[in-house]
């Protein structure tokens, strides 16, 4: 069973490649930001699978903190794109 979980972990990590492709080759700046946003969500899945494999639960805390920080970063970048102040 652990071997199968390891394969799932490798697939989940390999899924970061399309996001990186989008970040590097994206035709415009908003495309790159979409890549960053999706990358931040994928990391939570990686944290969950690692916590199941290693039986340690503090990794889930890292996932929660990561999703909140990624949300703040995406929101800041999106507001910068729209040309508005942060409190609007």
């Amino acid at each position: 069973m652990t071997g199968f979980m390891n394969i799932l972990l490798y697939i989940q990590i390999a899924l970061c490649a399309p996001c990186l492709y989008r970040i590097i080759r994206g035709p415009s700046i908003p495309d790159r930001m979409v890549g960053i946003d999706i990358f931040g969500i994928l990391v939570v899945g990686i944290c969950g699978i690692i916590s199941v494999i290693t039986e340690k639960d503090f990794i889930l805390d890292i996932g929660i903190a990561w999703v909140i920080l990624s949300f703040i970063g995406t929101l800041t970048l999106a507001k910068y794109l729209g040309g508005k102040k942060l409190n609007e």
Partner: peptide, 22 residues
């Protein structure tokens, strides 16, 4: 947390992209 942050980030990004001129 994941649901709310992902949807709100998507709204902000799509609006920002439209105003950016994509």
């Amino acid at each position: 947390i994941l649901f709310f942050t992902a949807t709100v980030a998507a709204h902000a990004l799509v609006r920002g992209a439209y105003h950016f001129g994509t």
